[in-house]
């Protein structure tokens, strides 16, 4: 009795993970937009605002973060499901 029971729970859990992965996949661009909107809050005068290199590092850092997150999601996400 316990065998199939466990199986069912396992499958359920896997499906649940897939759903959340899809959610994550959907949320990622929104996270990207938010993170890339933050520069609009930067002070523009050189004296108090972030330095040039830190601006560059921030923009590209967010970029790398998104790529890594997207890689991880794509690694586990099954895209062959017909419905979303």
């Amino acid at each position: 009795m316990s065998g199939p029971q466990k199986n069912a729970v396992f499958l359920e859990r896997a499906n649940y993970r897939q759903r959340r992965l899809r959610d994550a996949s959907r949320l990622l661009p929104i996270l990207g937009i938010v993170l890339w909107t933050i520069p609009l809050l930067w002070r523009t005068d050189q004296a108090v605002g972030p330095s040039n290199s830190r601006m560059v590092i921030y923009i590209f850092g967010v970029w790398v973060t998104l790529i890594v997150a997207s890689t991880l999601i794509a690694r586990f996400l099954r895209s062959d499901e017909t419905r979303d």
Binding site: L28, P29, G32, M55, W63, L66, I67
Partner: peptide, 19 residues
């Protein structure tokens, strides 16, 4: 840095491919 906007847009579209 504004030059990067041209590449940030497509990046967002690609990582949001599920949409």
């Amino acid at each position: 840095l504004e030059f990067a906007t041209i590449y940030l847009g497509p990046t967002l579209v690609m990582i949001g491919w599920w949409w």
